[in-house]
Design a protein around this nucleic acid. Structure first.
Lengths: 238, 238
DNA sequence: ACGCTCGTTGAACGCTTGTTTAAGATGCTG
DNA sequence: CAGCATCTTAAACAAGCGTTCAACGAGCGT
């Protein structure tokens, strides 16, 4: 393991700026190798079930070296969170510059510069990382803006609650990714993998998002009943 | 701790058949108390992060007693899976007998005989329990049947892929529950709690499921483009 | 060549984990 | 009462955990 630069311990990130993606091969900085190994292990088995020794083994270093570079396992986890968040933000920026997608789902389809990224997100969405939460909030804000544009251009219907609609769609999309194991069993689709091979998921999803599932008459009845139930304070169903 | 029955170690379950719910208070069989304590701990902190000693402490017994009753921590986890699955099946049966709901979401709204049940489900949906997987499959099958009835009665639109539609709706509903933490932050709604106080989630959801999000013209264009892209084998977008 | 810093390591520490074990309590049965 | 089965516990066990530490080697400015 040679020292391949002037300073290889730099907390700020001058490393993920090359043309290639941030999750390359086996060389790179020791620190980056450890982080990438941790990313994959965390994504595959969860943070608690992953030992520092396993990460060190994958990265080809000693357990002490992992601690030396990140201070603690928890700090390593935070570094992974920040790195994934930064990578996704970058990806989102380039995807946005390349041209708009079709729906909020399309935004996620571009998140596959490698399965580990989505897999890590699917894991950490459920164990409460502040950085991931901030990232989700940001994505919802962007979705609101983006859907307002779609509404203005006649692509999307207007909504009584634009923020609520964007948030629910985001929850559904992310939720499906988190439950990718069940999606694979139920639909035979790998939501973490190739976005071109997800039609068994995206076709039903687009059918629902296209016309809804209720008949227009049932929708109207439902809407009346719900609004009156929520506005009537004396008693919904007890 | 007195012995409060003839036999208090019975693997088959003659305990969850009373009129009251299965998650009662502090007395009951020692075995049941341990299982319920484990259920709450597992739901709150995850299985890996929960120690046998913590469960024993909550149940008011020694760690050895936990192992004596269940054999191992993993077997205790399986027992929790089976118990939750049985409880949800029972709840589903009674809800189905009481009268049909409005949509697949409504089926979940009835799953709150106490937050721990849904919380446990939200946890274990992501760490691959075979029993939970079987339960989900079963719920999707029921949803297909139920939605076929809705379709026949003019409530729901027909679908090109009834199983796919039901599965996607199930993934979305369960996914939102799994991401309840983000739902709370984004929408101010507790999806694990009182089903009467979830309008900030269910109103946007019903708006989407009612009319969809795309305008009819955009939907038609989208449908054409997608089907031709998937049917054209020479090359989707490269 | 010196001193200095830094990356790296293997060994060890303290702690928690799940589980085992031997012993004691309790109630039922003969 | 004796015998038995069951429940329960405190104590101990081995294993694995995250982390610390002292030592070593390499690069580098002076």
């Amino acid at each position: 393991m040679l020292n391949m630069g002037s300073t290889s311990q730099d907390v700020s990130a001058p490393e993920a700026e090359g043309p290639g993606p941030g999750l390359a091969a086996a060389d790179r900085t020791t620190r980056a190798r450890i982080r990438d190994a941790a990313l994959r292990r965390f994504a595959a088995s969860g943070v608690d079930a992953t030992s520092v020794r396993a990460i060190a083994g994958d990265a080809g270093v000693s357990p002490g070296s992992v601690i030396h570079h990140f201070g603690s396992k928890d700090a390593l986890r935070v570094a992974c969170d920040e790195h994934v968040a930064a990578l996704i933000r970058e990806q989102k920026r380039t995807a946005m510059a390349a041209g708009a997608g079709l729906d909020p789902l399309a935004a996620f389809r571009t998140y596959e510069e490698g399965p580990p990224l989505l897999a890590y997100l699917a894991r950490t969405l459920t164990d409460g990382s502040p950085h991931v939460a901030e990232l989700i909030d940001e994505m919802v804000r962007d979705a609101v803006d983006y859907m307002a544009q779609g509404e203005a251009s006649g692509l999307l219907q207007p909504s009584e609650d634009p923020h609520g609609r964007a948030a629910v769609l985001m929850l559904w999309s992310l939720g499906a990714v988190v439950l990718h194991e069940h999606a694979e069993r139920l639909l035979g689709v790998d939501l973490l993998g190739d976005p071109a091979a997800t039609e068994r998921y995206s076709l039903p999803a687009m059918e629902i998002l296209g016309r809804g599932i209720f008949t227009p008459e049932a929708d109207e009845q439902l809407r009346e009943r719900v609004t009156e139930a929520y506005h009537d304070e004396t008693g919904g169903r007890s």
